[in-house]
Design a protein around this nucleic acid. Structure first.
Lengths: 256, 256
DNA sequence: CTTACTTTCTCAAAAATTGAGATTTCAGGC
DNA sequence: GCCTGAAATCTCAATTTTTGAGAAAGTAAG
């Protein structure tokens, strides 16, 4: 094992249920000699990627918190979408959680969550949680807007092949412009999602609302989907404004 | 440069105002050859620590968001303190921002922030922001509870020496049990802070409230300080419960 | 002062990194 | 389809770092 891999192998041991590791446990888990693991841990400590915990254990360090903040402050999508996300949750006028998710290289990840004050539930999705590719409106609406080539690569990487049923499913979502799912991720919760695509920024994302299925009638669903679709369009517009020189942005509509 | 350092040097280039870097710019900034930087960037991409941006630029990647979430979910201090922090902000009954900060190896960092719904200001402090060691109630109250040896090491590392004025200042804060600062960090804002110390967990932290200085009279300040000190005690108790075997925790009071 | 444990150190063999430049890829323009 | 320039990867021998087993040193509790 070489370079970064050695370090990442240690960091990837940490999980929701494995917050603290001893050197001994790491060495066992990685089938690596103790002296090597000690050295690796020492370097990670110096970098702030690990910190020492109790009983000779180590925990994820402050550098992650620090870099996450930089991510929040500098991500163009987040900057464009945060205000809109807050508005959406307010305009929904019912208990809900708004989510912003996007496709990274080969995974969909939620990058922002905002609950209405009266929401007494929490969806599985939250900032920093990788999402299943094939389940939930949030992910599907993203896959539906992917260029065929990229979708194929993604599915290959995920071990799935692009069967016709899936293809038809995604084509329908794409035409429709939104996606609704019920109980696909969390029992009793429904997810409504609209895509956010920005060619210039090379990103495909989605804006979604999670609400309790009970009492969500067709009229209400319609209202909320329209809310999402228009909010997503506003985010796209804000992104285009970020990535385009100002002349084009203003002149183009006037010239046609 | 060797091992992790090479990778961290690249990552540390990213800042609040430098969200995207090209390989060329990195090579210039680090005075390193392009081919080496390309290799480094490729590894960081594969690890998810960087992602590709527009115009051949690179940005901090999804791994930081992911690991930050793990930090939130598994940090014992955060788990113990979050509910209390929310209560404190609610019980303050005036526009305020509650902060939880802690000392890492050689820096104080804010690890949680919670604004009351009516707070129309934002303090400089927020999750993931390293704080000045010597300024602000939040940091001072932490330094005041540090063992002499550790304080000396910390100051040496920060390039300061422990002069008598500082020593007396910190001793007073320690005796007092809390710290109040006005405008030390943000003009027009006051900070009230209480220390959180847990020997068993080897951590020194602080719980603080930031409010507008105007209209903060002595009586109100006293009320809020009491609120903070009591809340900090509750967090300490919750931490002790986490780090102590259950028998001791229950039996000890009965036996004395 | 032990004792048990955690962490760092030592050293020669083995493996990875380095950097300059050549090569390949890729996106856009023509 | 075919350029063109920039971006990214590859090549190779010299150099530097990593590796792992075990010794040694530091550390905390009894």
């Amino acid at each position: 094992m070489a370079g970064l891999e050695r370090y990442m192998a240690v960091l990837r041991l940490f999980g929701e249920a494995e917050g603290a590791w001893t050197v001994q446990a790491m060495a066992d888990a990685l089938a690596a000699p103790q002296s090597t693991v000690y050295r690796t841990v020492r370097d990670l400590l110096a970098a702030g990627l690990l910190e020492t915990g109790v009983d000779a254990s180590y925990r994820l360090g402050p550098a992650f918190i620090e870099f996450d903040r930089l991510t929040r402050l500098t991500d163009p999508l987040l900057r464009a979408a945060m205000p809109v996300l807050e508005d959406v949750v307010a305009q929904a006028r019912r208990p809900c959680v708004g989510l912003l998710s996007r496709l990274y290289d080969d995974q969909v990840m939620c990058i922002a969550d905002r609950a209405s004050p009266d929401a007494h539930f929490r969806p599985s999705y939250e900032r920093g949680r990788p999402m299943p590719l094939m389940q939930g409106a949030t992910s599907k609406v993203i896959l539906a807007r992917l260029p065929a080539r990229r979708l194929a690569k993604l599915l290959a990487h995920a071990g799935k092949s692009a069967d016709d049923a899936l293809r038809a499913d995604l084509a329908a979502i794409r035409r429709q412009g939104f996606c609704v799912g019920r109980g696909e991720i969390d029992r009793g919760l429904a997810g409504l999602a609209a895509p956010i695509v920005c060619e210039d920024a090379g990103l495909v994302a989605s804006l979604s609302l999670v609400l309790e299925s009970d009492g969500l009638d067709a009229a209400e669903e319609r209202r909320l989907v329209l809310l999402l679709v228009s909010a997503a369009a506003m985010i796209e517009a804000a992104l285009r404004a970020t990535f385009m020189p100002s002349e084009e942005k203003i002149a183009a509509p006037l010239m046609t």
